[in-house]
């Protein structure tokens, strides 16, 4: 069963630019879907349709069978949690805990239960010790996790992440990777919008490639990332581990640096 469905969607911006053109896409329950593409490909416009922030100019977007045109953003957001790229665009509370409580209160969750859920979310995302800290004083990685915790606290069925790795240092990226992996293994539907193929490759998600507002490829990452020319046309380049696998003529590509290092060491010894 698909939880989000785009049927021949076209979106025209107020300035006349067609940001989405003939987009048809189904996101199934429990799927991890990566939406990739260069700048201006229409990725963010696509994700804003998933909780009704944007409505299609023509075509239909349905979320859990309900057309987004007929639902409020608040009702849709209860089921589709969206984490924006820039954490500073949402942080405003006096403490990290208050920040997490904001969404819970908006959705009318009773105070006691909201407090419990907020505490659980902070704990899960490794922010329990920072609960009383003003969120503006947190590091970039902590802010990003706080924004995810603030959305995951109300337990939406679908989590949509917009460019989660932008501005993240190595430890924050690794931690973020663990978070996404955890969500994927818990059978939650996750949509990641990104142009960071290095981050996505080890996750091996279903991959949707966008270019000039259109879906130009849709399939398992291992198949989609093999289409070098298509990726280049879409302003992307295949992940480095895949390039390395190709150079050594491996049929089964590397999915982790450690794996590649071990194989190369072994090969060196054999030679």
């Amino acid at each position: 069963m698909s939880v989000i469905e785009f049927e021949d969607v076209r979106h025209r911006m107020p300035n006349g630019v067609v940001a989405l053109d003939s987009v048809s896409l189904k996101v199934g329950r429990g799927e991890v879907v990566a939406v990739v593409g260069g700048n201006g490909a229409g990725k963010t416009t696509l994700l804003k349709h998933m909780n009704g922030l944007l409505k299609p100019s023509s075509g239909r977007v349905t979320v859990f069978g309900k057309e987004t045109k007929e639902e409020s953003i608040a009702r849709l957001s209860r089921r589709v949690g969206l984490v924006f790229q820039n954490s500073d665009h949402q942080i405003f509370s006096e403490s990290a805990k208050e920040e997490v409580m904001f969404g819970l209160k908006n959705f009318g969750i009773p105070p006691g239960e909201a407090e419990e859920k907020a505490g659980r979310a902070l704990e899960y995302y490794g922010l329990a010790d920072l609960a009383a800290r003003p969120p503006l004083t947190l590091s970039g990685g902590e802010k990003k996790r706080l924004c995810i915790a603030a959305v995951m606290a109300w337990e939406p069925d679908v989590l949509v992440l917009d460019e989660p790795t932008v501005g993240q240092d190595y430890p924050s990226r690794s931690r973020l990777f663990g978070v996404v992996q955890g969500l994927a293994s818990s059978n939650r539907t996750v949509v990641i919008v990104s142009h960071d193929l290095e981050f996505l490759w080890p996750l091996s998600p279903r991959t949707v490639v966008m270019s000039k507002g259109r879906v130009v490829a849709d399939g398992p990452a291992r198949e989609v990332f093999m289409r070098t020319e298509m990726l280049r046309d879409a302003g992307l380049r295949e992940p480095q581990l895949l390039q390395l696998s190709r150079r050594f003529g491996r049929e089964e590509p590397f999915t982790a640096v450690d794996q590649a290092a071990a194989w190369l060491t072994e090969r060196g010894r054999a030679n």
């Binding site: 804003k48 409020s72 949690g81 924006f84 665009h89 949402q90 908006n106």
Partner: peptide, 12 residues
């Protein structure tokens, strides 16, 4: 963008 982010968190 800020309005979009807060509306996505249930702010009406």
């Amino acid at each position: 963008q800020i309005i979009d982010a807060q509306r996505s968190r249930g702010l009406e």
